[in-house]
Design a protein around this nucleic acid. Structure first.
Length: 436
RNA sequence: GUCCCCGUCGUCUAGCGGUCUAGGAUCCCGGUCUUUCAAGCCGGAGGCGGGGGUUCGAAUCCCCCCGGGGACACCA
């Protein structure tokens, strides 16, 4: 099957949602796996609902997911062709005109069988159907008609689409037959459901692909997750793009609908955050820090790439999204830090002196590395007769504004001597003043 | 309502007549490690929708029921 030609044919009436993205992904993987051609065709024949913004969003979404297309078409560019074929159907008597629209004459009896690659043979009783419009009174083609003409003209070998189109297939098959054309193979993939088990839609919350980007998901995580919704390869859960291309095929696709489980997506995203190249992750982290208003672009730049990379490496261990990482990076930048919920118990008056002493000791350090910082703090603690356990959390809260985070010495090193010393002293001062 | 599709742990899934006292992942709950929290590691809870068949033998095949979903436009 080296001449495989498939397409993703969205209607530009809104953003690309994850269900559509999954259909695009399956088509793309099928094409890439077989060394075929992946086509993006915008089905914009409904002029009242189609928008340019939607087309841009769809392209941007596919680009973000790195689902590149080899050919691109817009259905409305082919109106003349659609009308021409409608005429042909008219002259053949397969269609007729009524009330200004062109109607296709549906068979009144018999059965139509769809040989689906995933579902197997599905039979429909022709009496279930009625004649249907192929050309509206404004001379624009309707879905079932334009779809057939384009799929034929564009040489599609397989039509891989959502389950909701299964009932349309008989109608399309009749049109192929009336025109004397060979239909492509069909593969209807199961729907993606929301937690309530109804077709996933906006009322289920975030469903737009770009929304997942905004929320700090990595495209490889979303792709990996979407691929595993309805498709599997043994027990493997994590797939690189190359593995997906190598293993993907229609025989691994299930026929049952799947629920979109965000908890698992989160887990996968964490896995991918930890597998991603640190340099790239650092750049992404910088973007999200600005996006989330954690720091300004200038402040991020002032931090320098090297520290950003180190921050990304440490922060990705304990955060599941880039957005979470960005917020966890707050302490890298100047400014007052919050006292997190539940941290009051660490900031007790008795700790004021140790904090001050440790700040002074750290200030004298020439080399501010994790090893040096640890040595310095442990030395000071021995001197004070305290254990690390006694001061670790107070220091962490004072220096980072959080009760959880990277290992203490890594955290202090990352924040830098200046900020750490300043914050430990500020905390110490505050504790003395707060003695009440 | 009619037609169509589907039905294994809460969720994603493996299973394609015996190797299943049903495996993995996620989630949840313990334990371990520890300067926090994660991660890691160890352990636990949790499922073949129901009923009939077929067969020496059924999660796997057939039928019925039940349940869920989708489609029924001059939208795609």
């Amino acid at each position: 099957m080296s001449n495989v030609r498939v397409r993703f044919a969205p209607s530009p009436t809104g953003y690309l949602h994850v269900g559509g993205a999954r259909t695009a992904l399956f088509n793309w993987l099928f094409a890439r796996h077989h060394g075929g051609t992946f086509i993006l065709r915008i089905e914009d024949t409904d002029r009242t609902r189609s928008t340019e913004e939607a087309i841009d969003q769809i392209k941007e979404s596919l680009n973000w997911l790195t689902l590149d297309w080899d050919e691109y078409y817009r259905q409305t560019d082919r109106l003349e062709r659609h009308r021409e074929i409608a005429e042909e159907l008219l002259s053949k008597g397969a269609a007729y005109e009524s009330e200004g629209a062109v109607w296709f004459r549906a068979p009144r009896s018999g059965i139509t069988a769809v040989e689906d690659l995933i579902l197997g043979r599905v039979e429909f009783s022709n009496s279930e159907f009625k004649d249907f419009v192929i050309l509206r009174s404004d001379r624009t083609p309707t879905y079932n008609f334009a779809c057939v003409v384009d799929d034929h003209d564009m040489g599609m070998t397989h039509v891989i689409r959502g389950d909701e189109h299964l009932n349309n297939t008989p109608k399309q098959l009749w049109i192929y037959e009336a025109l004397g054309w060979d239909p492509p193979s069909f593969a209807h993939i199961p729907l993606i459901l929301g937690p309530d088990r109804t077709k996933l839609s906006k009322r289920h919350g975030a469903v737009s692909v770009l929304e997942y980007r905004r929320r700090g998901f990595l495209p490889e995580a979303l792709v990996n997750f979407l691929a595993r919704l309805g498709w599997s390869h043994g027990d493997q859960e994590i797939f690189t793009r190359e593995e997906l291309i190598r293993y993907f095929d229609l025989n691994g696709v299930r026929s049952a609908a799947a629920v979109f489980d965000e908890a698992k997506l989160l887990w996968l995203n964490h896995e991918w955050l930890r597998r991603t190249d640190p340099g790239r992750l650092a750049d992404l982290l910088a973007e999200y820090i600005v996006q989330e208003g954690v720091a300004t672009e200038e402040e991020v730049r002032a931090l320098g790439k090297e520290r950003l990379v180190r921050a990304a490496e440490l922060l990705r261990e304990r955060n599941k999204t880039l957005v979470d990482m960005a917020h966890a990076a707050r302490f890298l930048f100047p400014g007052e830090l919050p006292v997190p919920e539940g941290a009051e118990k660490f900031l007790v008056p008795e700790i004021a002196t140790p904090l001050e002493e440790i700040a002074a000791a750290l200030e004298g350090l020439y080399e501010f590395t994790p090893q040096a910082v640890e040595e310095c703090i442990r030395e000071k603690l021995a001197e004070l007769g305290l254990r690390l356990k006694d001061v670790a959390q107070p220091i962490r809260v004072a220096a980072s504004g959080r009760t959880v985070g990277p290992g203490l010495f890594d955290l202090l090193t990352l924040a830098g001597k200046e900020l750490v010393v300043e914050r430990l002293r500020a905390a110490s001062r505050r504790l003395r003043g707060d003695v009440k």
